[in-house]
Structure formats: structure tokens, C-alpha cells
Design a binder for these strands. Sequence first.
DNA 1: CTGTTAGCGCCTTCAA
DNA 2: TTGAAGGCGCTAACAG
Lengths: 338, 338
Amino acid sequence: MKQITIKDIAREAGVSIASVSRALNGQDGIGQEKRDRILEVCERFSYTPNGLARGLVKQGTDTIGIIMPDIQSPFYSELMVKASDAAHKKGYKVLLCNSFREIPTEAQYLKLLVESQVQGILIFPIGPRSLDSMEKYGKNVPVVALNELPEKSRIPYVCADEERAGTLATEYLISRGCKDLVFIGFKAERLAHRYRASSFLKTAARMRIPARIFEGHSDFRSSFERGYEHFKQFLLSGEPMPDGIVAASDATANGIVKACRENGLRIPNDFSLIGFDNISTELPYLELTTVAVSHVEQTEKAVALLDQLVRGRQLSRAEAAVKLEPRLVERRSCKNGM
Amino acid sequence: MKQITIKDIAREAGVSIASVSRALNGQDGIGQEKRDRILEVCERFSYTPNGLARGLVKQGTDTIGIIMPDIQSPFYSELMVKASDAAHKKGYKVLLCNSFREIPTEAQYLKLLVESQVQGILIFPIGPRSLDSMEKYGKNVPVVALNELPEKSRIPYVCADEERAGTLATEYLISRGCKDLVFIGFKAERLAHRYRASSFLKTAARMRIPARIFEGHSDFRSSFERGYEHFKQFLLSGEPMPDGIVAASDATANGIVKACRENGLRIPNDFSLIGFDNISTELPYLELTTVAVSHVEQTEKAVALLDQLVRGRQLSRAEAAVKLEPRLVERRSCKNGM
DNA sequence: CTGTTAGCGCCTTCAA
DNA sequence: TTGAAGGCGCTAACAG
């Protein structure tokens, strides 16, 4: 399939390549009649301009890349969709990449995107170990992180205030009368989990309610599986059953629900359950109460931030480190035991 | 962020740009010592080659594009992941695009990918209306369709033999003792549904079992919603309850299950349910029996086909129109009433 | 209004 | 083993 170039079109239409370029880009400085003729020829040859050449001379592609760990997770795919929307609104094209929760794959995509001359990158890091390559490629092109907080670094980010989220969730459970709390699905590598868990403990202590973190062993491919397996481990552990469970995330909560079904446990009858992230539109079988920031707000902020950077604005440390206020989304997975 | 070029590196290392290029691409014709020095300089400046320029001169990007209608659907996202895997194995990089089930968006991405000089495109068409742009851009670059069968066109495709799938599903339900069948979630625009539904009718007639297609009104964003709404409409319609339901797809079946829960219906106690596509690993609450082709087989075939085309091989009509044999995946949504 | 020309950053002959 | 030079397809001055 030999590529047809602007030259072919020019020859065929009997004009110069400059005119073709002008016609194609809707610039003026060309007669209507000539323009029509050129466009007609393009159509006839089903000519498509070479984006590489154009990008090369224009020094830009109007494209940003989005890297996320798991396209199959409802959480990420929803955020991804919202983020592309936001990017499109700002006039960017979007390249999507799925890192499969693998650090090397993630690094590879960062490289690919930089090489593809995207103007900026939005990344949902896999975890703290993502930092190295983010910092490396962040020298070439602006990078904004969502969702994991690269606090130790200078990478700009937009995420939820997870500490506050943990507090909200715990307070809510207690306000509904829970007297014994367990946190399930904890994964130490996730910074968000660390915040959620530590403020969980802190809040419970402050309110004088017994609370513990269940540390399930071994890790699993997805948060869903982790929730499922950890909760089964918890049931087998012989530990006393709490009346309130904080799941490390909604995906985790979903796994817990599955384990409950298999063990004849009912929510919220047997215990109250609360999660984080608000992916529950994807959980048709459970109306999960959760704590989260608005996905739209988060992604739009992130794109706006990236856009600033792309346009070369210098941002202060504070402007580039956005923590959004989470709020409670009340549904039906918590009983009212007051 | 001024881009660092091969020229800067050459100047810094005190060599010619040709040498830098050679070092970067691991070609020989350059001394080890010089090569190391160059690489060191690249590292120090965190130089990343410009893919646009490289693609331009190499006349190729080793990249393929994948376009799918809905990244949030477990069905598509799973296929997408499998397809990228297959592409990576063949040495291609992958660009992902989400058409949002919108024909214009789909066309736009086709254009974007062609302009980005991908070597080939894998597309999960939204429906028959996708054909126009597929044929248009198929002139520029090889395009292979999955999942919808563009039979009227010359676009190469790899999909399930949906007629056979419909037969299998219907036969199975009947073999399990069903005496009254309804097909729910039908959407006329989906070619696959038409095949499934018509062979459903045909098979039931052949086996002398009453069967009908319930035509729900109005359409919905996702198959899930369509299943949910259509089944609720069915319940309200006053039609007699069948003992076997064929859902237009697994996603549809999932919607039906949701409606069942809300109406106190139990599966398979109240009726047997079967779907298509085998996405049920994503339906933790129901072990749905289904009919489908292997996702891995399908995507690998598709990538192999595309690869042939990319390498310029001419394929016969038959080679470019692959229908895979579906098989029954037996789980627990059908009772045994024999 | 139109055409000519000089690059964009890189790879690849071709000479040295 | 090395470097100089041409050109990939396109846009953006600059001339006419």
C-alpha cells in the first residue's frame, strides 16, 4: 500500500504542494475554485495526510497519553473514560495505554508515549515503584499523576485526600452504631490504602471504638480477588466477627460481597460495609455505601493541570499537588443500629 | 521543554549524528568505546528519540491500532486485552481507541490511526453502519474486523459462527428439558443478534418447541441496560413465563439477572438462562452458562491475519473471512429438567 | 493568490 | 570505522 503524498495530489491537481497544504488545512490565501479542485482530488485518491510529517514540522501532535494499570477494572475504565472526555474537550487527542499492573510495561509505555511526541501524559501509577520512570520521562514531557500520590516527588498530581476519606468512612460506620471495626483488603504498596487504614485506626481510637486491620497474606491479581480471598481468610481465622467492615476499596468490597454470598452472610444484616472510590454503579447487586471524590471533577482538574503544563506555565508546588475533598455516598450497605 | 535531538548528542559527544544513530539502534559499524560514550551522553541528557522523525524515514511505526466500542464493557475490555497481548507477541506496539458506540467517533479514530501511520487496524465495529468508514480507510491501511461480520464487504474479519452459536444454545436448553423458549435483548442492528435469533427460531421449530423473540422497545446505552429494561418490559407485558430464556448476549443476561433479583425471580429455579460471549468471569454472582469462541483463539487469529496483510500478502476471500466454531460453556444457570 | 524553498529529526546510502 | 549529504512528507516563511 504505497502512501499517497501531498506531492501526488499537487501533480494531479496541477498546483503546487503549498496550495494543497493550504487547502487541506483550511487556511486562506487560496482561491475557492482551486481549493475545491484540490479537495476533490484528495477525496478521489482517498488521500490521508501523514501525521508523522505534520507532527514533525509542527513540533507537536495535540495528543496526550493516558496510562492506567487495568483497563478491565471498572474503577479505572470509568476514570479513563472521564479523563478522555476531559481531554477531548480541551482539544487533545488521546492515546490509551494499559500497563497491566506491571512496572516494566508501564515504563515501556511512558517511553512509547514520549517517543510518539505526545504533549503530555496522564498516569494512574501502579504504585510507588512507578515513580522512577515517571520522573525520568517527566523530564521530556509534562506528567500528571492521578490516584496515587507521589508525595515524595515533584510529579504534579490530583487525587483524593485519602486520609480524610478514611476518617469519613470510619466516622460514618460509628455514627451508624458500629461497635467493632475491621479493615479488610489492605495492600501496603498502595499509598492510598496506607492513608485510609491509618486514619481508620486513628479515628476509631479517637472515638474509642475497637478497630483492627486484617492483614491477609499473599497478593492477588486484582483488588476484587484480594477482597474475596482476604475475607475468606478472615472468616477462617477465627477472629470475632465485627459489625462494621471498611474495605480498602469498592473493588475489594465487591470481592467481600462475593465471599459473603458463598458463606450465607448478608449485608447489611450481618455487618455494615463501606468502601472507597465509588465504582458501585458497576455493582448492580449491591448498593454499596462509599467515600470518594467526583470522578469528573478529578479528571477535569487533572487535565486542566496538564494543559497548563503543556502550555509551558510554571506551577508552584501547591498548585501542582491537588488533594480533592472526598464525600460520603450513602447507599444501602450499612445498617442503622442507633 | 525544548526537545533534545540527535544533533545535540552528537555535538556533546564529539561525533557525527550518523554515529549517534548507529549507537542508538545497536547497529554495527561503530567502535565499542565510541558507542559507550554516546550512550552515556544520551543517558545523561535523558535523550529520547523522536518517533515521528524515525517513523517518517523508516516508513513505518511497528504499531497497530485497536478500536472498540466500549472500554467499560467487560466483554470488549477482555477481548481488547487479549488482542493487545497477541499484537505484542507479534512485535507490534498498540494504540487503543474507544469509540463510545458512536459512529462519528469511530470514524474519527480510524482517521487518527491512519494519520498516525499505524501499520494496521483491528476494529470491533459498532455495527453495520461502521462499514462505510472501514472501507474508506481500509484503502490506506489493512483493517481487520472482529465480532461483527461485515459480510457484505471485503473487509477481512474473524468472528464466531453466530448461527451455529444460536443453534447450540437452543439445542442445549431443549436438551435440558425446556418446553417454552423466549429470546430477550434482541437488537436488530447487531448482525450477531440476527444470526443468533434466527437460528434460535429455526432450531426450536425443528425440535418442535414453542419459541418467540421478545421485541423490547427503545434502545439503551449498554447491552446490560437493554437486558434489564427489556426483561422488565417482558414481565409487564403479561406474556406467559417461559422455562428457558436465551439472552442476546452475556451482558444482556446480566441485566436480566438484575431484573430477576428485583422481582424475586430465581435462576435457574424459575427458568433456565443462557447467554453468548462468555464474559461470565466478570459476573461473580451468577455462574452463567454460555456459548462462545475462545477469546484467545479469536484475537490471535485476527492479529495473525492482520500481520499477513501488513506484510503485504494477498489473501483469498476465504482466508480473509474466518468464522470460528463456538462451544458451550456449561455452568449453573440452566436446570436439568429431564 | 500562488509557487519555491528551507527545514522538522532521523536513518541510510555513499565516500573517505 | 567514520562522516557528509540526501530525503521521508509536510508546513511556514518568503518571493513573486
